[in-house]
Design a protein around this nucleic acid. Structure first.
Lengths: 199, 199, 199, 199
DNA sequence: GATGAATGAGCTTTCATTCAT
DNA sequence: CATGAATGAAAGCTCATTCAT
């Protein structure tokens, strides 16, 4: 029956998400997932063809949405800030916060799966992909402020750190408003940090 | 064959360090370690009494040195900077760089093992310990600048990020001078980021 | 294949009982047990969660029944023998034999596992427990006959010996009537042996 | 050097005896024996050609002495007791005690090794051998008292029990006098037990 | 749709023994 | 005389996956 099936599928997804988040893909135990979902190993394979397929089912939407985003289809328009306002941190905070609103709503915990728990899956390169994107972004900013800044290596380091802080916020805080507030702080922090570096 | 002893011990340590760095303690395969070291499982136990003992052999010096450090025996004196110089980033950079000199020399790659690959070992709490220390440090700084800053959660987030950036530098760059330079940049970055947050 | 389930479970229990009886718990090889049972190590763990759990499955009923017994729930009433009849061994034999009837029926070979093959399991103290009980019993008897008997050490020695004889009978003779007959002889033997000691 | 060698040999024998007594031959660890003896695995094989040879070295004298004994070369003369005295237990005790004197002096703890710890060695049948001898002895006695006694199975059971009690005394009591006293009690116990059985 | 039996490779660890030095 | 490096088999246990029912 369709209804029954979907209940089981959902139960598996729910417990799997928890297990993958805690242990990562490789260390997650399929046995424990299905047990906690109230079904059996055998039945699991009626719903998903492998442990990997289960992981894919959890993150593919998140992944595709993200790829769509970075391909510019839903690009977050860059907020324009007058040169005069660039030192008014309160104002900048407000603007960032506003621009983050839609973005944060869309974030789900599965983003964490994609970034931090995907080793051993087809998505294991996603983290690197995002780091590269962020790195480009940081380097752009750095160039903008000071084309002579010599520590190009900082681009990648900051990118990795930023992503770490970002997923850390998602792991620890589940309420949209708090996430939005903290990500805003993070962006402020990185903006001024980068400015300092390049002075 | 006993002449080879130290060679084998070294070979095991070398391949183990690599395997632990790549997979973490729990996921590292002793079989692979000894195979890559050119010996056998049975022989491994002539050198180390367990997988855990092997890990301990790799990191205990590093750990003890670190604990000694944070207990203040070789405390890094806080550089004194005149109020007037606080905005002279070039000067600050020079001072930090100078103060880092001895510290960076002491850093080995095994610090990464301690922080990022020690789950399942007696050292698994070291990362949290360091994050707590850094968090205190960040919160102090934040308080200093602005006792009313409300996003206390940022203390832990920044702490975790900083440690991530720090070990990332160690993972990617092996030369002392480059490490010293990049860690300096990291500290500059965090100092001004924190200042921005609290304005 | 799931129809076979109980067959396999039984096969494992059967071969395990044999192996445990021959080698004891610690020295029994799970690989040999499952091989003789016609299955594999991996499959074994679909039936029992550990080697220990397998042993427990074999003896827990026996153990619980025994504990119930010594807690007096089904206490064997002490046969009353007239002072005048105390030297009529034929009569005593008949009485003991009668009183043993229900007790012997309940005995299974797994009692041997409990007593002689349980080192390394949660039941490893059962033998000592029984020896202590028997020792108390023997000491009581000795006191009754001769409160001045000085070789108190004999209590424990006789207790251990008696239990040895008892399990030996179980090991060698499988028919209820024969067991009943031999245990009767054993009790007669000990009764008069104790009387002789204390004269 | 001869002296040095014998020290090592003795050290190995001493620790081996302890380990074999505690764990039995199969479960004894050669590594632990040599470690406790203050030498190394490699050196062990300069003294004994195998774990088995070590065991043999411990018990062969004891075994040969015992075989010599049962072959009648040093037969313990059967004490002659007048028919009239057969019920004077005090007297019987004295006589047995006297006859045991030389025998008990000769007993060493290695007899326990031979009987209870020799599984896996060439001596593993010794226990059965002795049980057979004792069985014959008991059956003889039984026949003597009552040729019609029907429970012939008791011969083997009593034999096994007796040996158990005997080695138990050796395990628990190390002083010659106490051993002598308790073995006397044991013999008295069995003598009158057998008499009771056959009445 | 659901069950769980079955498989085989993997894990870390212990062992007695051999032998080059 | 002594050392301990080396081996290979065995131990109990976990795993993802397959498939008969």
């Amino acid at each position: 029956m369709q209804i029954k099936k979907e209940e089981v599928r959902e139960a598996i997804l729910t417990t799997a998400e928890k297990e993958f988040l805690e242990k990562g893909f490789n260390n997650a135990s399929l046995r424990k997932i299905v047990k906690n979902a109230g079904t059996t190993i055998g039945n699991f394979y009626n719903y998903y063809e492998s442990k990997e397929a289960l992981f894919v089912a959890l993150v593919e939407k998140e992944y595709n949405g993200f790829i769509h985003l970075i391909n510019g289809h839903h690009a977050i328009k860059k907020p324009e800030i007058n040169e005069a306002d660039k030192n008014d941190i309160g104002l900048i905070r407000t603007i960032i916060n506003h621009y983050l609103e839609d973005f944060v709503k869309v974030l789900s915990d599965r983003f964490i799966l994609l970034i931090e728990c995907s080793e051993g899956t087809p998505y294991e390169d996603t983290k690197q992909l995002i780091i590269r994107l962020l790195e480009e972004h940081f380097i752009e900013h750095i160039q903008e402020h000071n084309a002579n800044y010599s520590n190009k290596e900082m681009g990648e380091i900051l990118a990795k750190q930023f992503l770490e802080g970002f997923t850390d916020i998602l792991r620890k805080y589940k309420k949209t408003e708090i996430r939005q507030k903290l990500i805003t702080e993070l962006i402020v922090f990185y903006s001024f940090g980068v400015m300092a570096l390049t002075q």
